[in-house]
Simulated assay, not measured.
Amino acid sequence: MSGTRNPGTGLDAHLLGDIRINTPAVERRAATLPVRRSLKKEWQAGWLLNAVRCIDLTTLSGDDTPDRVARLCAKARQPVAPDLLDAMGVQGLTTGAVCVYPTMVAAAKRALGNSGIPVASVATGFPAGLMPLDLRLAEIRHAVDQGADEIDIVIARAHVLRAEWSALYDEIRAMRDACGTARMKAILATGDLKSLENVARASHVAMQAGADWIKTSTGKEGVNATLPVSLVMCRAIRDHHARTGHKVGFKPAGGLRTAKDAIAWQILMREELGRDWLAPDLFRIGASSLLGDIERQISHHVTGRYAAGYRQAIA
């Protein structure tokens, strides 16, 4: 993994005040993305394999146990059946990371061993973020002490809804500092932010505060990742890169369940941000069930038929 970090900048309040979003235009553009490229046969299979290496394979359930996490990690190490990969001439394919609660980080690190797969941990009072700041920072430090390579923080949505941009910036900056060498993903919980203007402004504040990725959702909101919201966030990433020269990653999460979804979001990356954002350093998909459908489609490509469900281990 690249060691390049987003160092952040000072808060640019004038930029935030100038943001205007044409919502109908965003929705029209987003609606065209899934049909802009016709991917068939080996090209479709190639895009699906690329999606696999960008997945943050996730379990964030109240009944998580070390054994359950170990099973997830085994799937991360071998996300697609070896015979299917052999038939396609592919070796060494893993998911982009495993994402767990802070209490499960140590179990994930043990299970992944020397595989090189990063462990991401949610923190800061996930999913609501409604904890005192000192406790949120302490949770980050605990996850890092346990060995987390990446931290998925949640923002305080109230700061966005009240346009308290300095307070939001200061909190995210403190979280970035608490992460130390661990890379930070800022979860904006876009389903709670009420408008695309708020999504764009929160994206810029998070990037100015040093987020290495911006992420749509916790997966727990009523509305999670959508293409219009993702388009707005990607345009913000493009603007930040043009202004600062720093590349910030993007992570859609929540609601991506099918191989078609995996392709649609990769087309968004390719169309709006370019080829660099089709690699796990800059693109992650937060998912728990998506991998099963991708493997099902890859099996169909290799064998010409869909495998029985019992032949494909779910994550």
Rank of each mutant, 00 (worst) to 15 (best):
R5S: 13
G10A: 15
D12H: 13
D12C: 08
D12G: 10
I19P: 06
R20E: 15
N22R: 13
T23Q: 13
V35I: 07
R37F: 08
S38F: 12
S38T: 15
L57I: 04
L60Q: 09
S61Y: 10
G62R: 11
D64M: 01
P66C: 03
L72R: 12
Q78F: 02
Q78A: 15
P82S: 01
L85R: 13
A87W: 10
T94Q: 14
V98P: 03
V100W: 07
Y101E: 01
P102K: 06
I117P: 03
P118F: 04
P118S: 02
A120R: 03
S121V: 06
V122P: 07
A128D: 09
P132E: 10
A138H: 09
I140Q: 03
I140R: 02
A143L: 12
G147W: 05
D152R: 04
V154Q: 03
V154N: 01
H159E: 10
A163G: 10
S166T: 14
A167V: 01
L168C: 04
D177Q: 15
A182D: 04
M184Y: 08
I187F: 08
L188Q: 09
T190S: 11
E197H: 02
V199F: 03
A200S: 13
A200M: 06
S203F: 03
H204G: 00
T218V: 11
K220Y: 11
V223K: 04
N224P: 01
T226R: 05
T226V: 01
T226M: 01
P228E: 11
V232Y: 02
A236E: 14
I237K: 08
D239W: 04
H240A: 01
V248W: 06
K251M: 13
G255F: 05
R257D: 09
A259N: 09
D261L: 00
L268I: 06
A279K: 12
A279P: 00
D281A: 13
L290D: 07
H301A: 12
G304H: 14
Y306T: 14
A313K: 12
I314M: 12
I314H: 11
